[in-house]
């Protein structure tokens, strides 16, 4: 290989630059600490198993949205037989996760996603929390 030194050095510099955000966070000591969520409910169980809710709540919400708007099916029977009104505000927020700022927003901010649900859907009034 010609110019082995230059190429390898270049590659190394490129890799370091590429991964620099990771090193930066390591240096500041805040890497890999997921946010502490306040679930805000006395319910023992999520609508579906918790692992599924964590990984796929957006899929479930999309299913709900299509079922409600397109087909007029507004009642959801969960795997355990419990029935829920398919409503983001009335079921998800008012029944369980009373604090959007401490539950939804904290994790979305950590994951750097900006879902636009709340442009239209109503969230219960709460004190303005600092999103961290």
């Amino acid at each position: 290989m010609y110019d082995k030194g230059k190429i390898l050095t270049g590659l190394l510099v490129f890799l370091v630059l590429l991964t620099s955000p990771i090193w930066y966070n390591f240096a500041l000591g805040k890497a890999g600490t997921p946010p502490q969520l306040k679930v805000g409910t006395k319910e023992k169980k999520c609508i579906e198993p918790t692992a599924y809710m964590i990984s796929s709540h957006m899929t479930l919400l999309n299913t709900w949205r299509n079922a409600v708007i397109r087909d007029g099916n507004r009642l959801y029977t969960a795997g355990d037989g419990k029935q829920y009104d398919m409503s983001l505000t009335k079921t998800c927020l008012l029944q369980c996760h009373t604090s959007k700022a401490e539950f939804c927003d904290r994790c979305h901010a950590y994951a750097a996603v900006q879902p636009y649900c709340w442009d239209c859907h109503n969230a219960p009034e709460e004190k303005q929390h600092e999103i961290q």
């Binding site: 579906e48 299913t63 099916n73 009642l75 029977t77 969960a78």
Partner: peptide, 8 residues
């Protein structure tokens, strides 16, 4: 998922 949808 086991979830089923139906009208009210």
């Amino acid at each position: 998922r086991a979830g089923q949808v139906q009208p009210n």
